[in-house]
Amino acid sequence: MPRDELDVMSEIKRNYILQKIKKDGLRADGRKLDEMRKVVIQTNFIPRASGSAVVTLGRTKVVCGIKIEAGEPFPDTPNQGVLTTNVELLPMAFPTFEAGPPSEDSIEIARVVDRGIRESKMIDLQKLVVEPAKQVWIVFIDIDVIDYDGNLIDACTIAAVSALATAVVPASTIGQKDFPLPITCKPASVTMMKIDNVVIVDPDLEEEQIASARLTVTMAEDGHLKAMQKGEPGFFTLEEIQKAIKTSSDVGSQIRSNYPK
């Protein structure tokens, strides 16, 4: 993702990462090819939000806050609540991230995270209607990236799903009783990258810098595909994609075991 002098990596390091993957089937940090970094989730970190989570994935760190507000539905979906997802790549997270309007990268991340949550129907939007066509609950998922060391898509999905799973709809603001956000399932995204024809799970920043292509597969508990995204200028073969789907199913259930409740 970063495009500048920091993108340059010494030949020695590049070769070391490559050699280790090819010869030993291990990553520079000792992980197996399909091994995620350690995931730590802390929920209810921001009590002022309707739901929140701080997630560290290795040395990547993101904060997700959910705000739920009453508002108007979209005219074409009068009987549904509204879901929006936004990701901020904060300047504090990386030397070349800059303040300003959302970059292509942050839009792509937000849209892939959004698609996984939306298409798995994790949130039962039909239960978020106050008065059809007039008033519904709007769920804002906002994610701040505060430390960047690779694989933001998975870190952000984990944060969003964890924050949503603990979110409460503040119905007392309109004179009703607060209720937990209605959740039907917990999607997990698994992002893989290809380094010299080897596909690895959960790339860190150094691996991202030498990888050619990226693939994200989001599945829910039912084992069905809910969202996919291929990124970066490289390619995957159909066999690699089929294998990646299998990997995603396995690694996804490991991720899910970390989710709250």
Binding site: R115, R118, E119, S120, L215, G223, H224, L225, K226, A227, M228, Q229, K230, F235, F236, T237, L238, I241, I245, S249
Partner: peptide
């Protein structure tokens, strides 16, 4: 070559 250079998916599909 059959190399996949773009792929996106949304909705619900079994394998």
């Amino acid at each position: 070559s059959g190399k996949v250079v773009l792929m996106q998916m949304d909705g619900d599909l079994s394998v």
